[in-house]
Computed example of a mutant assay.
Amino acid sequence: MLRQAIKRVTVALQPSHMIISRQSSSVSSAINSIVLKSLKEHYLEVSKLSPPPKVNPPAPFTVIKGSLDSTGPVLKRNYGEEEISLYVMRLANITSGGVGDDADESENGINQLFLHVDISKPGQKESLHFLCGLYPDAIGIHSVSMRPKLDNAASGFLHIPTKYHGPDFQDLDERMRDALHGYIEERGINEALFHFLQAWLYVKDHRNLLRWFRSIGQFVDDQKKSTVAASTG
């Protein structure tokens, strides 16, 4: 008798459980459709944006093939026996929630850049590294350090040094600061690089955003198909 009672309860509960499951699947599918529609609309909107006019890097720098799809160096050149590689990224805004000119500047362009300058020589295990702030009309050195030499073909970005990497640049006397500025300027590291790197970062950001929309959409779409398959199984 007990077994028969349990069987009756199980049969009675089953239709209700199936209804709840189908309702849940329906809601999930509807939400996925909304997300996919929004992603598609934004993707199409971003894809219509016009890229900036093509800008060539100042000679003798050349663009490293594949740099738009990696986190490695962007430009390189030789200076005598030295090999110089340039990495670039946005200059982080220290204060958030800016208004006025600062807010307009962050929305309308990439007007402040971090420039990593890696200078290596054959036969040496370490390279000389400059971290600079690059602007349309100026360049400033933030730090100078020795770092392990990197393979420029690698996709990884520069590693943060784990050993002592020198004093704060502003703690150096003016004569040494001027000498180090002259050192990098002699190698073509100056504000003339800004316009190319600004345009390059715009294109890279555009690619990354489109790639982000596609990857999120593919994931949600796969999840939607899996949900539909499970509900009909």
Rank of each mutant, 00 (worst) to 15 (best):
I119L: 07
G188S: 03
G182T: 13
S67W: 06
S96A: 14
H42C: 06
I6P: 00
K121E: 15
Q170E: 15
Y79F: 15
D173F: 13
K163S: 15
F213C: 02
G133E: 10
A153M: 12
N152A: 08
L150M: 14
E107G: 03
T71C: 13
P148V: 11
L134C: 01
P53I: 12
K224N: 13
V220W: 01
W200Y: 15
A154S: 15
S143G: 11
V63I: 15
D102H: 02
P136Q: 06
I119P: 02
R211P: 03
P161Q: 05
K40Y: 09
A103T: 03
P53H: 11
S96G: 09
L210T: 02
S155Y: 08
D171R: 08
G233I: 02
V46W: 13
Y43I: 03
A12V: 05
K224E: 12
E82F: 03
L13H: 03
S38T: 06
L91G: 02
T162I: 08
C132D: 03
M176G: 01
Y183S: 06
R207P: 00
N208C: 04
S29Q: 05
V9D: 06
R3G: 14
D137M: 04
Q112M: 04
K7Y: 07
S127I: 02
R147N: 03
W200K: 06
P167Y: 07
W200G: 05
G182C: 12
G80C: 09
L44S: 07
G97M: 10
L180K: 09
N208R: 00
N93G: 01
V11H: 06
F157Q: 13
S67P: 00
K149E: 04
M1F: 11
H165R: 14
H42Y: 14
I160K: 14
E174D: 14
L172F: 14
G133P: 00
L49A: 10
Y202V: 08
A59S: 04
S226Q: 12
V228Q: 10
Y183E: 11
G98N: 08
S25G: 03
E107H: 09
S33H: 10
P15L: 07
A153E: 15
V27P: 05
V144K: 00
V228F: 05
G80Q: 11
Y43F: 13
H42I: 03
Y43R: 09
I110N: 03
M176I: 13
L36K: 05
G140N: 08
L49N: 08
A92Y: 00
P53V: 13
N208L: 05
K65W: 12
L209K: 03
L131K: 04
R207I: 05
D101I: 09
R175W: 05
K204P: 01
S33M: 07
L39Q: 02
Y79C: 05
D104Q: 09
G98L: 12
G97K: 09
K149G: 04
P161R: 09
P73T: 03
F213N: 01
R175V: 15
N32F: 13
V27T: 08
P148W: 04
S145F: 04
G98W: 06
H181C: 14
E185K: 15
L86C: 02
G123Y: 13
L113W: 04
G72V: 04
P167T: 01
